[in-house]
Design a protein around this nucleic acid. Structure first.
Length: 442
RNA sequence: GGCCCGGUCGUCUAGUGGACUAGGACGCAGCCCUUUCAAGGCUGAUAUCGCGGGUUCGAAUCCCGCCCGGGCUACCA
């Protein structure tokens, strides 16, 4: 898709601080950053906090932390300001009010005094009669005189709404099917459907890159932008959704893997998560699967983005993470391992690192692998033969020099004397020493 | 219910009418290497391309119908 004026590229993400930072937010942020950097544009972070009930300021902080951890940094945002500040919707309420007053004055919107119960009844009736529901326009036609509390509804002009989507091509919606919808709630706050396009327009957003769940919201927002006399964004891009293993949309309640903080806690490398996210829903058309951010910048394009939702897969993520861990040099890996091994000294970690390297899918695995260094492993069930080997090993090592080559030599002598396969001898020893079948070399 | 977006191995995907006996990756199985495991190397199994009709000499690829999944249709975002 051509970008007419590259220098004017402005994109944004607009997460809501209503819970932990969501995996989907990272994914959307990644595609926005990629697009912005490819075109020398600007990436803004906007906080959509118009839902008074569910917002928590602490969650805003969590979003910042997760995004910074992934190095998905923004150029403008609530924490750093910018030419279109403020970037928190709760601080832009005056702007929305002015815009709704304008629409009201021009007869493009009207006050609605219906109660939620009345609206509910209308909707249920339509459903019972099996006809598509649209608001009846009762308050436009015959507004009640005895009520004070109201919402503001947009008078949907209808007609055909077309817009370009960089992933799906030219989209067309019939606005005749859309009923008059609420743009200002009775608490004086805007709905998402209103705040979002007003912000996009006033912040001069050129390309709206977001999740597919917003595809059918686009005509609503475009009608509003038109009605307000603003210029429309040049294009949209609706990314395929990230699905849970069961095929449902990733939800904060049901799917722990939606929680970005989890990946950091478990020791996924941010660059590996980015890599995995890039591959979920997009592919370069070549066999390459491991990409640095710079490489992504070079090869990413929206025309190779998948149209169908993609299921999240731990196995693949673990593999990619392992690839990244193995590519780290020992020094760097040891440094990153430290927070995961609080019980061990730096020098010990450094010594263990090479053996750990090929055995970890994520950094938190290191603690399991080395647990025997600070807690005694449970006594494994061993048969008489195995115990015999262990006794022999103890005897052999009693006068050994405590260095790997010497130890190895002594143990091999035991193997030899027993006339058994190395595995027969080493496995019991491993179990006795580490309590695990998988461990660094003895 | 209406509108919209989708549907290729278990999963992520390649594929845009003939080179497809449908390719790769993860996962899985086996072998090799190895003091175990892991890593690495090699080999292998797994897809009637959602279903049914067309069009065509030829269809995963084009057309129609259906089915299934998801999204929107909220004073959530």
């Amino acid at each position: 898709m051509a970008v007419p004026d590259a220098s004017k590229v402005r994109v944004r993400i607009a997460p809501s601080p209503t819970g932990f930072a969501h995996l989907g937010t990272a994914s959307t942020a990644l595609y926005n950053v990629l697009f912005a950097r490819q075109h020398g544009g600007t990436f803004a972070l906007r906080i959509d906090d118009t839902d008074l009930e569910r917002n928590r300021p602490a969650y805003e902080q969590v979003i910042y932390e997760s995004l910074h951890w992934l190095e998905l940094d923004w150029d403008e945002g609530p924490d750093m300001g910018g030419p279109f500040a403020p970037y928190r919707q709760s601080e832009r309420v005056d702007t929305y009010r002015e815009h709704s007053v304008k629409l009201l004055a021009e007869g493009k919107a009207y006050k609605c005094y219906c109660t939620p119960e009345e609206l509910d009844a209308e909707r249920k009736q339509a459903q019972a009669e099996k006809r598509p529901y649209k608001y009846s326009r009762r308050c436009l036609i015959d507004p009640p005189q005895d009520r004070a509390e109201f919402t503001v509804r947009f008078k949907v002009p209808g007609g055909e709404i077309k817009f370009p989507d960089m992933i799906r091509g030219e989209m067309t919606f019939d606005a005749g099917l859309i009923g008059d919808f609420i743009i200002m709630k009775s608490d004086g706050f805007p709905t998402y459907q209103f705040a979002s396009p007003v912000d996009d327009a006033t912040m001069k957003i050129s390309h709206v890159i977001r999740g597919e769940e917003h595809l059918s919201n686009t005509p609503y927002q475009l009608m509003l932008i038109d009605a307000l006399g603003y210029e429309r964004p040049e294009a949209y891009a609706h990314m395929p959704l990230i699905l849970a293993k069961d095929g449902a949309k990733l939800s904060k309640r049901k799917h722990p893997e939606a929680n970005l903080a989890l990946y950091r806690q478990q020791g996924y490398l941010p660059e590996a998560l980015i890599n995995y996210l890039a591959l979920l829903g997009w592919n370069p058309g070549t066999a390459q699967e491991i990409f640095t951010f710079e490489e992504l910048l070079r090869v990413f394009s929206f025309d190779r983005v998948q149209h169908a939702g993609a299921r999240f897969d731990w196995d693949k993520l673990n593999w990619i993470n392992g690839e990244y861990i193995r590519r780290l040099d020992d020094e760097e890996l040891a440094r990153r391992l430290q927070p995961f091994l609080p019980k061990l000294e730096e020098a010990t970690i450094r010594r263990a690192t090479p053996a750990l390297k090929t055995r970890m899918a994520k950094l938190a695995d290191a603690a399991d692998l080395l647990e025997y260094l600070w807690t005694d492993p449970p006594v494994p069930p061993l048969d008489e033969e195995a115990l015999e080997f262990i006794r022999a090993a103890i005897a052999a090592l009693s006068d050994a020099q405590w260095e790997p080559p010497a130890i190895h030599e002594k143990l091999m002598a035991v193997v030899e004397a027993a006339g058994a396969k190395p595995n027969k001898v080493f496995m019991p020893i491993r179990l006795a020493v580490t309590g695990k079948k998988i461990s660094p070399p003895i």
